[in-house]
Amino acid sequence: MTINWFKFASPAAFYPIAGRLIPWFGRVALALVLIGLFWGFFLTADQLGGSNPQKEYYRIIYVHVPAAWMSMWLYLVLAGWSAIGLVFNTRLSFMMAKAVAPTGAIFTFLALWTGALWGRPSWGTYWDWDPRLTSELLLFFLYIGYIALHSAIDDTRRADRAAALLAIVGLVMVPVIFLSINCPDPNQCAALHQRSDPGSIHLSILIPMLTMTLGLWSYSFAAVFARLRTIILTREADHAWVSDVIAKEATA
C-alpha cells in the first residue's frame, strides 16, 4: 500500500488537518513547559557545586539551551522544506518553509538574549564572543537574510524559490561557518568540543531541560501550523475551496 504523499501536498487537503492539530500541540506544549518549570525551580538544588560552580542563575539553562536547540532544528526544517519544494515543485513545501522562518528567528533571538543574561553573572560580561553565542548570532543573520529576501521579492513564486535556494546555500555553509568560529586558530583547536556538553550536566537538571525542549518543540509545531494556515488562505484566495472555508469560519 503506497501512501500517496502528494495527496497531502495540496494546500486544500492539509488546511483542515493542520487546523485539528494546532490545539492538540498547543495543550501538550503548555503541559510540558509547566512541568519543566515546576521541576526545574522547585525540585532541584538552588546552587550547583562540581567543576563549574553556579548559583541560582544556572536556571536560565532551562530556557537558553532549549531555545538554542530549537533555533538550529528549525533552520534544518526550513532548509529541508526548501529543498523539497525546489525538487518537487510543490507549493505547500515553500509555504511551510515560510511559516517556519519567523518562529526560528524568534528562538535564535531568545537563545542570544538568555545566553547574554546567563553570561553576565557567570562570565562577568554580557557578550564575550564565546563560540556558541557567536554561532547563534550568525544563525540569526541567516534567518533574517531568508525573511528579508522573501519579503523583498513581490512575485511569490520567485520569492519562494530564491529564499529556498538561499536557505540551502546557508545550510551548506553552516558547518564551515561554525568551524571557523569555534576553531579560529587551526594550530591549536581545543575549543572544538563544548566546555559543558550535555553529558556532564546533573540528571536532575537534564530532565527538566529536556521536558522544556519537548515543550518548545511542540509549541513550534502549533505556531508554524497556525502561520501556515494564514499563508495558505492568503495564497489560495482565488480557489473555490477557500470561499466556503471563509464562509464557515468567518461566521463561527
Binding site: L138, G145, V169, M173, I177
Partner: peptide
C-alpha cells in the same frame, strides 16, 4: 545575505 557567508 552574503556577509554571514563571508565569515570563514
Amino acid at each position: 545575505l552574503i556577509l554571514p557567508l563571508y565569515v570563514p
